[in-house]
């Protein structure tokens, strides 16, 4: 068992686990946003948080400062993070266009108003 000691909180380096802990918070916050927000744009913001939680993981797994040389994902980490950033931009552009289209048709961005399709 490896415990995070409060005693050496400031004098020792952090590890991948600490980054993952932050990533987990971002991820869960994002999931909660997706689940709880009624505003479509709020949901999109949740998605951005989720993607960033994953990105933080990728960066942590790839970083030489956190795991030492030659360990972990290596360059794959930052490269995947880079691609995720670009793909997220693309996704956000389309999602936003769709939300605006919805807004034009419904005069609302309330996800719960999207209820014409039920059966």
């Amino acid at each position: 068992m490896h415990h995070f000691m409060l005693a050496n909180l400031l004098t020792e380096p952090v590890g991948v686990a600490h980054y993952m802990a932050v990533g987990a918070v971002l991820f869960v916050c994002g999931v909660l946003c997706m689940a709880l927000k009624r505003n479509a744009l709020g949901v999109l913001m949740g998605i951005e948080l989720v993607l960033n939680g994953a990105n933080l993981n990728f960066i942590a797994f790839g970083s030489r400062f956190l795991r030492g040389e030659g360990q972990g994902l290596g360059l794959d980490g930052p490269l995947m993070a880079l691609f995720v950033i670009v793909l997220a931009a693309a996704e956000a552009a389309v999602a936003l266009a769709i939300v605006l289209n919805f807004y034009n048709n419904y005069d609302s961005v309330d996800i719960d108003r999207a209820d014409q399709l039920q059966g």
Binding site: L82, I85, V86, A89, A90, A93, L96, L100
Partner: peptide
Amino acid sequence: EPSRKVAAAKLTGAAALQIA
């Protein structure tokens, strides 16, 4: 190379913004 992609990604956003 990487900057080319940045440019492309930004362009996507920018064009959408302009249209909006």
